[in-house]
Design a protein around this nucleic acid. Structure first.
Lengths: 187, 187
DNA sequence: TGACTAAACTAATGTCATTAGTTATTATAC
DNA sequence: GTATAATAACTAATGACATTAGTTTAGTCA
């Protein structure tokens, strides 16, 4: 017995993400995770500190992925095009990995240092996209809040089946973003 | 023993809401609820079907309160003023009852019939506010999605301490809403 | 080879939700 | 007013889960 599984925290994290995306964040239990990894529950504590710690790792990873997806999406774009592409990249990430994103949304608060850092990276990325607008620092920060509210709000409502009308979702998102950006430009 | 407490589902619901707002939704357990109501846990099942049922009741109630708050806020207002007031009423409700709102955000999905109905009431209310704009039905529905995304996104990010910069939050919200509305008007 | 490190394990505890079955209180019917 | 029915509380039991303590054993390295 006790054959080593070669586990490490990354493997545990990836398995947790897989369960989250396939079955929902509430089914990410240490029991389910251990079963998936052919190990007993307490063995997981060699790699993660516990369930709350795992949730934090997932949130952090989620924010990293979102940033990466947005970075990739804006390559070769600037101004309004870039912001639109970044917004879609954000929402498309949530569509592809709803459980992982939900781990972040389910976090009681985002005060954990590492989560904070990943979140700061997202904010700084959006600030970069706003440079062509030559806003004051304060103005830019308000816009970042606006942009984040829009994409997070849209993505989470969509994820929870909050949009029930028979209406193109991408079109809703496109209009939401372009309307906001138009308001910015014509402000 | 077994003195009757005069419990009913409303009392249970109100106690759950109180725990949620004071201590957070994750501490709304049947055990905590029973203790608060001077009753043993199984007794709660005479009034609610179980924890998932309670969560649904909370979500439904949350949506009702949000609608009421918005209705109250727009009295005597119309057009952009009304939409701005409604947006602030939404966010201020979440500020006042974060745990109750979180119960809704924590629901796996919003497919439950009664939650759906309460949600439809909110959508219909926003549609009424859009009447002065004389939009097509499709256009109006896209705007409703936009408005909901904005207020939900802002409120939930704020609730989870997602806004960490030292920057007026009401001002962020005001700008977010007016920028969007300006984009609509100048579309 | 021998000693150390660490990854797995077993065992135990405590919290929680839920169900089944029981008791006792309140309301209703007569 | 008393008998009966409905129901709100209870006790007891089960099963899922997270977590901690202590143990074994598999790799690693001197």
């Amino acid at each position: 017995m006790a054959i080593r599984q070669g586990l490490d925290s990354e493997t545990v994290l990836l398995a947790a993400i897989e369960i989250a995306d396939q079955q929902g964040i509430e089914l990410v239990t240490l029991a389910a995770l251990a079963a998936k990894l052919n190990v007993k529950t307490p063995s997981l504590y060699n790699h993660i500190k516990g369930l709350p710690d795992l949730r934090k790792l997932m949130s952090q990873r989620s924010l990293q992925h979102i940033r990466e997806a947005m970075v990739e999406a804006v390559l070769g774009k600037s101004g309004e095009d870039a912001l639109l592409a970044a917004g879609f990249a954000y929402v498309n990430f949530v569509r592809k990995q709803p459980g992982l994103y939900d781990a972040m949304a389910a976090l009681p608060d985002l005060e954990d240092p590492q989560v904070k850092e990943a979140s700061t990276q997202v904010v700084m990325f959006i600030l970069r996209l706003l440079e062509p607008y030559h806003l004051s620092e304060e103005d830019a920060l308000h816009v970042v809040r606006g942009f984040r509210s829009i994409v997070h709000g849209f993505a989470s409502l969509e994820m929870k089946n909050g949009f029930r009308m028979n209406l193109e979702r991408d079109e809703s998102l496109r209009r939401l973003l372009t309307t906001y950006l138009r308001g910015m430009a014509k402000g």
